[in-house]
Design a protein around this nucleic acid. Structure first.
Lengths: 178, 178
DNA sequence: GTCTATAGGAAGATAGAC
DNA sequence: GTCTATCTTCCTATAGAC
């Protein structure tokens, strides 16, 4: 994949984080990337192709993002609930990806793969810190909770601080210090 | 609100559950409702107004849906994870509502209100069955988890059975039998 | 590979009759 | 209140030059 393509996809993630998948206009993306619309079609064929590649790209970014063997579990989960540009963009795009996959068969498999990877990473961290805990179940519950809380935060139903408190509470329950 | 309006809004919920908010076409909705597009504009002004009213309607439906003083807590939560037409339509529409609200200020307040109502109902059920539990925290965590699991289920990242198992596990942890 | 210019079509919205 | 017919706008996509 060329640098140009990467930069277009990065721009697409930003636009999606701002306007949602439904709000992504090819012309707007062209402006964001500083190129013409024709070039986007040259590289990605059509809007659907662009979208597919963008959402795969979000997956890749998410994978990079979480790479953190050795980092504290608390941090690993709580870092998904932070008011920084990077987290906001990623979480918003990720939420859009999941919401889009509900109506788009093509996206389901890559989405499920990414979810699996993320859950596995959290499960590993759990195993390191709490060898006796049922790591897979706990990881699956905590990550699903993070997604639920994140969506509530981004949609304005809950404050970030409250979301973080609730997550901390869940971690304490799932992984009591022995 | 007239019966006609209600029937249009019901049709809109069905269409949204099938195609998502982004997929809702006024013409398609007209077909679903068995009327002309002009009539939709007569009743709701424009697409945005239609959408706003529809999403409020989803809120109302969700409120009705949960009305169940006296029902077991387990049932109350687990009934959100069921493969019936009604649950699927409601959950899908609800997910779309939340995803849309991320990019639509106007929807946030009604969405937050509905969320509050739902959480409060669950909290009441908790208080009845487990007087000593921190009902509000538990209710907020369990409902957020339901939303996260529901979205994973609808987007094909998890089976329904697995989602139900995980939820049961969380309930057991949050509300241990004394 | 990249642009400008534009074709073509889909979807939102309205006019006007009944 | 409701319809048919149509306008208009917006957006995807392509043609063709560089």
């Amino acid at each position: 994949m060329s640098e140009r393509q990467k930069s277009i996809l990065d721009a697409a993630v930003r636009v999606i984080a701002r306007t949602g998948v439904r709000g992504l206009r090819v012309e707007q993306l062209a402006a964001e990337a500083g190129i013409s619309t024709a070039l986007i079609y040259y590289h990605f064929g059509d809007r659907a192709g662009l979208l597919r590649r963008t959402l795969e790209h979000i997956n890749d970014r998410a994978a990079d993002y979480t790479q953190s063997t050795g980092v504290e579990l608390d941090l690993l989960l709580l870092q998904e609930l932070q008011d920084t540009e990077a987290v906001r963009v990623n979480s918003t795009a990720w939420g859009e990806l999941r919401a889009t996959a509900v109506f788009n068969e093509e996206l389901r498999e890559p989405l499920a793969d990414s979810t699996r990877v993320w859950v596995a990473e959290i499960a590993d961290a759990i195993r390191r810190a709490h060898p006796d805990a049922p790591a897979t179940d706990v990881a699956e519950r905590l990550t699903a909770l993070v997604e639920g809380l994140s969506e509530r935060w981004l949609s304005g139903s809950i404050t970030l601080d409250r979301a973080r408190d609730l997550l901390r509470g869940a971690i304490a329950l799932e992984l009591p210090d022995r």
